[in-house]
Design a protein around this nucleic acid. Structure first.
Length: 694
DNA sequence: CGGTTTCGCTTTTTT
DNA sequence: AGCGAAACCG
């Protein structure tokens, strides 16, 4: 997403983006295509927006136009993005464009948050009880493993979750999946799918995919409900439309209805999520489903120099296209694109980092103007190490999410169980965390009893009949646990979520458990910090919305509605480290694209699966992030799974225009020494500057 | 039942 | 190499 500035070259780094231009009443600062896209509100519109062509700008300006000029009430406008970050950014930019208070009621959210909102409001129709749990991917994984343990034992179901997710994204229910199964393996997966769905319902829980799937079912099957929502949405705007999957397409269609007031913005060349169900052909499908569809192309790029753009165009020309478009720019040729061969992955990291130092102290550019992009998260390690060695501040995005951490999951499980007594998945997680002397045997018995009575595990703990299968100490322990949970539910009701969490943590002495579990005091401390951070977030959420129930808070946390790491505001003067996927929508003056090798980019698995085109788009996304300089690096050898392998430069390098490339570093020792020397000098400079003598 | 060891899998990407 | 889960031992 480029900033909302008048069209033209930008010297500003991403760190200072978002300040935005002052509100403009006319549309004089838009180019003709952009203006047309903003002002066309008479029917469905598809905006094909090339990289850096100002697509977010068009959406935000259009929202302002819909409110200000077309006179549509903000509460009838819904804008949908894929990431919370994009939604946040869009909100901020719309707010900057509109007069104060003029956007009250406006909805700008993600697909998943919108789905959750619908589910919450239509809970009864969806057959969900209050406080229903939202399972993240790990939770559903654990649930599947649990089902497998009890049912048939088949390790062939390893990728069952992915398959189930696919089915859900395609709106295929278990029965249909089973009847269409191609082979026994798939049939097994389909049966597992059925059991999984039954478990979810029994647990009063939904997973991420359900946040789209279930609203679609609701809107499809209940006319009254559908009308109500269609009446609410007078104009729907969808960003990154090429990333929608089958279910999301259907959700959009159902919300828009016959009115057809829809603006979608997308770029088939930036479709990089096919692996998780995205259907770029949804762009083309719109034309069939909405005959009145108008198509507007945004082809002027305001981001990159022409060399960079030429390389991007040349690369992507090797892909088939749904829509033809050619990006152009007026920014001048700029510097050549450099291709740097490195000895190995360490050398690659060193060279890039040395160069960043050179930029910072040789040319006085900011660290924040530099980004290192790569295919897989594991590649970040080396760069982190090199950056740390030189005391360069960096910002790492992606990697293990905050909510994937054990300690955070533990606390979340407690909260889920408090909100939803049927959440057996949560119960199983915390039943012995910390140790309560309730072992697998006891849990097994409890599960059997609960199953036979058709109730949840927690409820079973309190039933008198349980004494028929359990007795003595184990029974005692289960009863204690149930009473303890009930007490905390009361605390949550009376004193709020935050107090309940604090009480839970105090009661179980969670810090002590962490100390006991962690290998070193240091990691224990880190984990305790994470827990503290979570509590802070909960406190903040409750502060924002006094009425928010425990369940709502937990749901929002699971959606990562908040948090999302230190985020943009920490940006500052830091080198940005991220995957190509995470880089989509961002821009940086200087981009280093690392590991441009066969088996890495394109990735090995994509070569095997013959999905090179998506890899090419990924490379395209990487290249088009660059504003002024672009450096592609690859290593001659690299360590994979511990063993050394030799690497070949990526085929994509051969697809770039040779005249725009400048090859470097057929590694001579002198070169290497020079780089090191430069690095040392720059490091000395940095230290002097900071007055740091450590 | 709880702690330790060993094994095996990972590294594609994530709302 | 590094991490989590099963397997094994006390």
């Amino acid at each position: 997403m480029s900033s909302d500035r008048p069209n033209g070259p930008s010297r500003r780094s991403t760190a200072t983006r978002g300040r935005g231009a002052p509100a403009v009443s006319g549309q004089a600062d838009l180019n003709p295509a952009q203006r047309a896209a903003v002002q066309y509100i008479d029917g469905p519109l598809l905006v094909l927006a090339g990289a850096g062509s100002g697509k977010t700008r068009v959406i935000t300006r259009k929202i302002a136009y819909l409110i200000g000029t077309a006179g549509i009430a903000p509460r009838h406008i819904v804008a949908v993005t894929f990431t919370n970050k994009a939604a946040r950014e869009m909100k901020a930019r719309v707010a900057a464009l509109s007069s104060r208070g003029g956007t009250t009621g406006l909805t700008i959210t993600t697909f998943h948050s919108l789905g959750l909102e619908i589910l919450r409001r239509e809970r009864a129709a969806a057959g969900l009880k209050a406080g229903f749990s939202l399972l993240d991917e790990q939770d559903s994984d654990a649930l599947l493993r649990e089902i497998l343990r009890h049912g048939d034992d088949d390790p062939a179901t390893a990728d069952a979750r992915a398959r189930i997710s696919q089915w859900k994204n395609d709106l295929v229910p278990p029965a249909v999946a089973l009847s269409h199964a191609a082979d026994e393996r798939e049939a097994r997966q389909a049966r597992l799918y059925g059991e999984y769905e039954r478990a979810l319902r029994a647990y009063n829980a939904v997973d991420f995919d359900d946040l789209i799937l279930r609203p679609v079912e609701l809107l499809r099957d209940h006319a009254e409900l559908r009308e109500r929502w269609q009446n609410r949405v007078h104009h729907l705007l969808v960003d990154e439309y090429q990333d929608t999957n089958g279910a999301q397409y259907e959700l959009v269609r159902l919300l828009v209805g016959v009115r057809g007031a829809l603006t979608v913005v997308g770029d088939d060349d930036q479709s990089i999520y096919a692996w998780r169900g995205a259907r770029p052909e949804n762009l083309a499908r719109l034309r069939e489903d909405l005959p009145r569809l108008r198509v507007i192309k945004l082809e002027q790029n305001y981001r990159s120099s022409t060399r960079i753009l030429r390389a991007a165009n040349a690369l992507i020309a090797n892909n088939p296209h749904l829509f033809e478009k050619k990006l152009w720019s007026e920014l001048g040729p700029g510097e050549p694109i450099r291709v740097v061969q490195c000895r190995d992955e360490e050398h690659e990291a060193e060279r890039i980092v040395a160069e960043i130092l050179q930029r910072r102290y040789g040319r006085n550019e900011g660290f924040g103007d530099c980004a290192i992009l790569y295919r897989g998260n594991h590649q970040a390690r080396l760069f982190e190490k090199a950056l740390r060695a030189h005391d360069i501040p960096y910002f790492l995005s992606g990697g293990q999410s905050f909510f994937a951490r054990t300690e955070v999951k533990d606390v979340m499980a407690y909260l889920r169980l408090l909100a939803n007594p049927d959440d057996d998945a949560a119960f199983l997680r915390l039943v012995n965390v910390p140790r309560r002397e309730i072992g697998p045997h006891t849990v097994e018995k409890l599960g059997g009893y609960a199953g036979s009575r058709g109730i949840g595990l927690l409820a079973a703990c309190e039933e008198l009949g349980l004494s028929s299968v359990l007795s003595g100490r184990p029974l005692e322990r289960l009863r204690e646990l149930a009473h303890w949970v009930a007490r905390h539910v009361r605390i949550a009701d009376r004193e709020g979520t935050v107090e309940a969490v604090r009480s839970v943590l105090r009661d179980v002495d969670y810090d002590d458990w962490l100390r006991e579990q962690s290998s070193s005091p240091k990691t224990a401390e880190r984990r305790a910090e994470n827990v503290a951070e979570l509590v802070e977030w909960i406190a903040r959420l409750q502060g924002d919305d006094r009425d928010a129930s425990l369940a709502e808070i937990v749901q929002r946390l699971t959606l990562q509605d908040v948090l999302e790491r230190q985020g943009d505001e920490t940006g500052g003067e830091r080198v940005h480290l991220m995957t190509l996927h995470a880089a989509k929508g961002l821009e940086f003056p200087n981009v280093y694209l690392a590991g441009v090798e066969e088996e890495l980019l394109p990735h090995r698995s994509s070569i095997e699966a013959d999905t090179i085109e998506e890899e090419r788009r990924l490379a395209y996304v990487g290249i088009t992030r660059a504003q002024r300089t672009l450096t592609l690096t690859f290593a001659a050898r690299r360590r994979r799974f511990g063993e050394q392998i030799s690497c070949e430069p990526s085929r994509f390098l051969a697809e770039l225009p040779a005249k725009d490339l400048q090859w470097e570093g057929r590694d001579t020792p002198g070169d290497r020494e020079t780089q090191r020397q430069r690095g040392r000098e720059s490091l000395a400079g940095l230290r002097a500057m900071l007055g740091d003598d450590g």
